[in-house]
Each structure stands twice: as structure tokens, then as C-alpha cells.
Simulated assay, not measured.
Amino acid sequence: MHFSHSELEHEIQMFLSEYLKDKSEETCGTYQRALREFQRYYTVAHSWFRFRTQDIEQYKLYLSQYKKLSQVSVSTYLTSIRRLLDYLVAKGKLATNPAKKVKGNRRPTAHTAGTLSEAEAEKLLNVLATEKPQDHRDLITIRLMLECAASEHELVKANVMDFQKSAGGYRLFVQGKGKKSKSEIVEMPAALGQEIERYLLRRENVTQSSPLLASHSRRVSNQRMTTRAMRYRIKHWLEVAGVLRDNITANSLRHTAAKLWLERDKLSLEEIQRKMRHGMISTTQIYAKNQG
């Protein structure tokens, strides 16, 4: 089977509008990026590409060897192709889906981001300040990651209305990865909930729809923080604390939370799975293997 450039572009757009209509913003972005890459590849390969298994294998090599994507990214891009070709088979445009015979790469059995030791985590917390609003926000951000395993993605999307006090303490409703709504809950210690209340009181013009963690720069004051800005600020504090290494990133703080729950607090894998909001216990088991 062969498609012209315009035919393939049309089919991809139809697929995206139909398949992604109920998907999260993050999932939509992932599929759009992956299929744009496939379109670029097809522009060069269209003279010989005929949607055969060997053609998909060749595309997989292109992603890993030429584009140098990680194993996880290659698998994600192949999944997008697999779903697209399923759609084309259902429409009668293809007889079979050749991508089904091309295996993705195995899930990693260890996290690439490192973790902090308990002493390093304490050192980081001890250098944090609250005098300036942006420092106060950073303290809350880092504590939500270290104590509650909140992720960058969850925190940049959080609004004031998502932070609630209940009979059992404080909690934050978050939009998990791949989710379309804020249906998951981050439980937090009372002291951290009270710290968030103090931070919100010092801000001006705060409404329920305001971002929970706001920018405090003059140019975009009270606007939502970006992931990039959040990473920059966390890196700053990791440097100040003297615990920054090549494999330590903002995401390391979430992994550190799981490590401390496992090693220090002796929580079960099932309890850690719940607290980290993992869909599968196999994801949580990676932490246990890392401690091997």
C-alpha cells in the first residue's frame, strides 16, 4: 500500500481528531509529536515505504540510531504508529497492521534519575527559606515532591481550588499523567498543608482558579509556573545544598520520596503504589529492585 504525502497527512489528521477526542492534553501532545516525526520520515522514505513489517522495522532503527531517542521514546513512537495503522485497517485503507509484529523496547528496570539519601534530603530542606514569596513557593514545591511524591506535571497544573482541608488533614487533587481530569489525590502532612495556607495568605488577588504555585517575577507575577521554571528553581536549591550531581534532577525528589518510604518507613509496595498513584504495581516494584 502506498499513500501520497497529502493522503497520509489527511489520514493522520482524521485519526488524531477521532482517536484523541477524549484523551488528555499530554496524550494528545505525545501522539501529535510522534506522528509529525513519522510524517517527516515518510517525506524522505515514501519512494520505497509500503507499510510492510520491514518498513516499520527500518523506521524503528531510524528513531533509535539516527534520532537517538531513548528506549522509552522509541516504544512510545511505535505505539502511535500502531494505533494509526489500526485505524487505517478499520477504515479499509490497509489489509493488515504491520506494526503489530514490531516489538517496542523493554520498559527500563531502573530509573535513570538518581535519588537523594535521607541526609541529603534533610540538607536540602534545611537550606530552603521563606522570606521571599518565590522562596516560600519553592519550599512548598520541594516538600510536596519529597514528602508526597508529587510530580512536576501535577504541580504546574494545580489550582488553589484543588487544595482542600478535610477532616483527615490536607489533600491536593491532581491530574495524573495521561489523565484528563484531576481525579487523583495527594495526601499531605498537616504541617505542610498549614505552610501552603500561609503561602496563599501572603499572595494578592488569589482566587479559586489561581495557580497553587505561582510565578513571582515582575514580568509574569501570579501567573502559572512553567515546568522549565520549576526545574530551574529546584536545581538552584540543589546547588545551594551541595547535593546536585549529574543524575539528580527535579524528578529525583519524587523518586527519593519512594526510596524513603521503602527504606526508612518500611511501607509495603502496595502502600507506596497508592501514595505514588501508580496504575500498576510493576512500576512501583522498580524501586524495590533499585534497592536490591
Rank of each mutant, 00 (worst) to 15 (best):
G279N: 10
A129P: 06
S24W: 07
L262Y: 08
I81K: 03
E25V: 07
V72F: 12
L128E: 02
F15H: 06
H153L: 14
A90K: 15
S252V: 08
T76N: 11
A257M: 11
S181L: 14
I272R: 12
S117L: 10
R224F: 04
D22V: 01
A129C: 11
A229I: 07
T227C: 03
Q194M: 10
T283R: 02
I272M: 02
Q13T: 07
L267F: 05
L244P: 01
S73Y: 04
K132V: 00
L262E: 06
R274M: 13
A257Y: 08
K132D: 11
Q54S: 14
E37G: 00
K21L: 02
L116M: 04
Y77D: 05
F173I: 03
H236D: 11
Q65D: 06
N97C: 03
C148F: 08
F51H: 09
N247G: 01
R277F: 08
S268N: 10
I286Q: 00
N126Y: 05
Q273G: 05
E25Q: 10
Q273R: 08
E204K: 14
D86H: 00
S217V: 04
F173C: 04
N97M: 04
T96M: 10
A149Y: 02
N247D: 12
A167G: 08
E122L: 13
V174S: 05
N97W: 00
V89T: 06
E131R: 13
A99D: 06
V220E: 15
A95P: 03
S209L: 07
R107W: 12
E187Q: 15
T43E: 13
Q223V: 07
A129W: 07
Q65A: 13
Y77M: 12
L253R: 10
N126I: 05
A34Q: 01
R274E: 14
P98T: 01
L139E: 07
A34T: 05
M188S: 07
K132M: 08
E197S: 08
H5S: 11
H236W: 10
D246N: 12
Q32V: 02
W261K: 04
S282I: 06
I12V: 03
F49R: 09
L200D: 08
Y87K: 14
S215V: 05
V243H: 00
P189A: 06
F3V: 00
I286F: 02
E11A: 01
E184I: 00
R277M: 10
E195Y: 05
D86M: 01
F173H: 10
L88V: 07
H111T: 08
Q134I: 11
L94R: 05
L88D: 06
A95V: 10
Q164T: 06
E187W: 15
A190C: 05
T27N: 07
F173A: 06
L16Y: 05
R228D: 05
Q194V: 06
Y232G: 07
H153V: 09
T79A: 00
M161C: 09
L125Q: 11
C148P: 11
R218N: 09
T112V: 12
N222P: 15
